[in-house]
Design a protein around this nucleic acid. Structure first.
Lengths: 252, 252
DNA sequence: CGCGGTTTTGAGAATCCTCAAAACCAGTGG
DNA sequence: CCACTGGTTTTGAGGATTCTCAAAACCGCG
């Protein structure tokens, strides 16, 4: 049972009918791979909004793939300062660090209700032995996470507050659209300005004033506790970011 | 041939006599793994200080493990602002992103003369098929890089200038000591204050003033174009960082 | 209606930036 | 041997950004 309470177990989605597989963003599985993953998967874990999925310092016995919902990864300093490292969306793998290296060095918290596929950490070596292609996919995912972190670090280190905010929102928005969150409607991101502040490395007050400028330019709007993205092109433009090429990506 | 000029090829160190293997920081290989890596290795590449090892946007056909020397990974914004993402030391793998995902999203530049083991990107799938343990090691290395980036991002986003500087220098120093750079003498880091500034997300001037405070506290000293670390404990203390547990780590 | 969480606004203070110039230092060529 | 050069470090000063403190406004929910 994960820390942070409020969770439940189910077994609703057999891998053969995985809702993610239908999305064009993800690569197809071979039948044999599908069979392996199906055995590899131990069930589904539901977590409520605000619940901790993983906490820093723990030795989680599990590895998860997000089926639905949003979350974020973060670290804390001793006095409570928080840095959000990245956001987690459907198809993303969480807990790989602990699985591979032994201990979580960051925490993960749900931004919305989530459904997670549960895998056993101890069976990862088996996957590497029997499914080299899947093993390669896992490395692919790790490399992608690293790439996103590189970009985030560039942003926090070298972009201005306005550029940072525009970059972050367009980045999240594009990722969300890519995995079909919110369907075709304008993307709504379920976060508070405090989350944004803790991602950008800014104070809440200054973040608010920065977002106001984006709001005035009609690029975003704040609706019932979330950020609605109105003009991704405009955001990309003010951030000075190219955007991602969305290649077809693997997941497990 | 890598971009950035000034490089040469050799074949001096058979894997069986790899100088890294003697270090206590690295795990041992089984004979069979050693044989594979030995065939996997195509030769050695020497690069001079200041040379580009990899550049953003390229599709490098190679993957490297650092045998000796220092380097750094970085990204640039369109107007020239630079963010250094991490430093590269012996035993580190570089170019994995391009190998796995197709294109480099960052550049790598040598801080000192370096010697690199050269591998073929195209043979990586073969490694995954025949050597699951090595494949696992590569994932381990990717997860470790991610972990370092997380910590760097926390630093740049949430630590004060003084904490950041102290964290960075103690971090580099501990890594360097771990892989035996500079032997047992106090670690000397071959970087300029501009590098530090671009790592911390600060201006050169403010970085200089911040480093001066560390110098006055006798924690560091600047000697012939590099940073000498005098008091790691003091640095750790002022940074509010725990330091790394140094587990025995793999390399390829 | 009251409550807790979130957003918004104002204001003064601290941090950090840019501009500018000097000092320093190793290497080069005269 | 010395002057010159380019890169790096150091210092000063004014200005912009960002921070903290504080309070008000807003809003969904019980």
């Amino acid at each position: 049972m994960p820390p942070g309470g409020r969770s439940f177990l189910t077994r609703q989605y057999p891998c053969e009918q995985c809702p993610l597989r239908a999305l064009p963003a993800f690569r197809d599985f071979e039948k044999q791979e599908l069979g392996f993953v199906s055995r590899f998967k131990k069930g589904e874990l539901g977590v409520e909004k605000g619940a901790s999925v993983l906490v820093e310092g723990s030795h989680s016995a599990h590895l998860y793939t997000v089926l639905s919902g949003w979350a974020f990864r973060y670290k804390l300093l001793a006095d409570g300062r928080r840095q959000i490292l990245n956001y987690v969306m459907p198809g993303d793998l969480i807990g790989l660090q602990a699985s591979v290296m032994g201990e979580m060095q960051h925490s993960v918290e749900a931004l919305s209700p989530m459904l997670l596929c549960v895998f056993e950490r101890d069976e990862l070596p088996l996957l590497y032995r029997q499914q080299p292609k899947l093993a390669y996919d896992i490395t692919w995912l790790a490399a992608r996470e690293e790439q996103m972190l590189d970009e985030n670090l560039l942003s926090v280190g070298r972009r201005t507050a306005l550029e940072r905010a525009a970059y972050l929102i367009s980045f999240i928005s594009m990722r969300a659209k890519n995995v079909g969150l919110n369907g075709t409607k304008p993307v709504e991101i379920p976060i508070t300005q405090q989350h944004i502040a803790d991602t950008l490395g800014l104070s809440l007050v200054h973040t608010n004033k920065t977002l106001k400028r984006l709001t005035e330019r009609r690029m975003i709007a704040w609706r019932d506790g979330g950020c609605e993205v109105l003009d991704v092109e405009g955001l990309l433009d003010t951030s000075g970011w190219d955007g991602h090429k969305d290649v077809r990506r693997p997941f497990v």
